[in-house]
Design a protein around this nucleic acid. Structure first.
Length: 349
DNA sequence: GCCACCGGTGGC
DNA sequence: GCCACCGGTGGC
């Protein structure tokens, strides 16, 4: 029945300031290894109901549905939220904001990045009341995510960093349309000590939602299990320290927004018609929300990116050059691939 | 020259 | 359709 979700928020960087680092903690994602067995509690299906949120005004559709389980199920579990830093921060209830030192500012380091949306904060959904609770650090989030099925998250769990919070308190955030939401995978192993797992969210319209990278202690960036394996072979010292392949997972969260990721086009259909560009284009007036979830376990980790900006406005001039003309041929909205571009450019916030 | 990022494909 | 992998290159 209850399902919980973890989410982290991401913020997009519009400028450079961003967040990159916010990259979603990799941990959010589950490791390939074996997932733990889900307990009934997490998996279950029902969803959550979300109360109204205090801080945000969005309408939100919350996740509710208690009754139906299906859809929601997914959402409810672990979700990662990505959001705009500024937004996110404000959204944090005061109580939270004050508490841990880490809350007031992002625990993650921010580096200038080029532009893509990044995770700015992490949240997890209470298995009992389904309210989302902000997690003060990426490390804590990874910890929770790693054992989310065996140890469902409860509001009481948050007392570790936020004294007296309970299910009676308003949610720290509400899943609404103001941000991009992504559902994270449960039970992803924490990276080995000295290693870092980075989640890079791609821009809207890309053919993939995100990429996971592991940064080895030497600073080497590894992008697949094959690369990790080769790296470990060359550096047996890590193996001696106990590093194993089961500690790495390249699973990425899934965006809730259906059209965030471009669908793969059937090769055969080069015609423009076949493509749906536009219709699904996000409403520029609102931020994008995405959520990723693990269907198997039903856990959701959430993340949202509050872009206030429309990611796509066609216009945009690409910040980067595009390399493939093909896609753009359908211009119009389609071109979102570059959305990142627009994101960064957008001044908002 | 490097590398973060994106696209595209093979395999399921 | 999804995911893992990795080639290629824009942007620095």
């Amino acid at each position: 029945m209850q399902r919980q979700s973890l989410k982290f928020t991401i913020r997009l960087n519009r400028e450079q300031n961003m967040v990159n680092d916010l990259t979603v903690p990799s941990h959010l994602i589950s490791m390939e290894g074996e997932p733990t067995i889900p307990n009934s509690s997490t998996l279950g299906g029902s969803l959550e109901t979300t109360p109204q949120d205090p801080f945000s005004s969005m309408e939100g559709e919350e996740t509710h549905n208690v009754g139906d389980e299906e859809n929601q199920a997914e959402n409810a579990q672990n979700q990662l939220v990505l959001y705009d830093p500024s937004v996110a921060i404000e959204a944090v209830p005061d109580s939270v904001a004050h508490q841990p030192p880490s809350f007031s500012r992002f625990p993650f380091s921010i580096q200038p990045s080029r532009v893509l949306p990044a995770v700015g904060a992490f949240t997890v959904q209470c298995a009992n009341c389904f309210k989302w609770r902000l997690i003060p650090s990426k490390e804590k989030y990874e910890e929770i995510r790693e054992h989310i099925t065996e140890q469902p998250f409860l509001c009481e769990t948050a007392r570790e960093w936020r004294s007296d919070v309970s299910c009676d308190d308003a949610p720290d955030l509400v899943q609404d349309e103001s941000r991009l939401w992504a559902i994270d995978k449960p039970n992803i192993a924490k990276p080995p000590r000295g290693w870092e797992r980075l989640l890079r969210i791609r821009g809207e319209g890309s053919n993939k939602f995100a990429d996971v990278y592991y940064i080895a202690p030497t600073g080497k960036r590894l992008r697949s299990t094959v690369e990790i394996q080769k790296y470990l072979e060359k550096h047996p010292e890590y193996i001696e320290e106990g590093v194993t392949m089961s500690q790495f997972s390249f699973q990425v969260p899934k965006p809730l927004q259906e059209n965030y990721v471009k669908k793969r086009r059937p090769h055969s259909a080069p015609s423009c018609n076949a493509i749906d560009h536009g219709t699904s284009a996000p409403d520029p007036s609102k931020a994008i929300t995405w959520v990723v979830s693990d269907e198997d376990t039903n856990l959701q980790l959430g993340g949202w990116a509050g872009l206030s900006t429309p990611i796509l406005e066609h216009e945009s001039q690409p910040a980067k050059k595009k390399r493939t003309p093909t896609k753009h041929r359908f211009n119009g909205n389609l071109v979102y691939n570059q959305h990142e571009v627009s994101v960064e450019q957008s001044p908002q916030l």
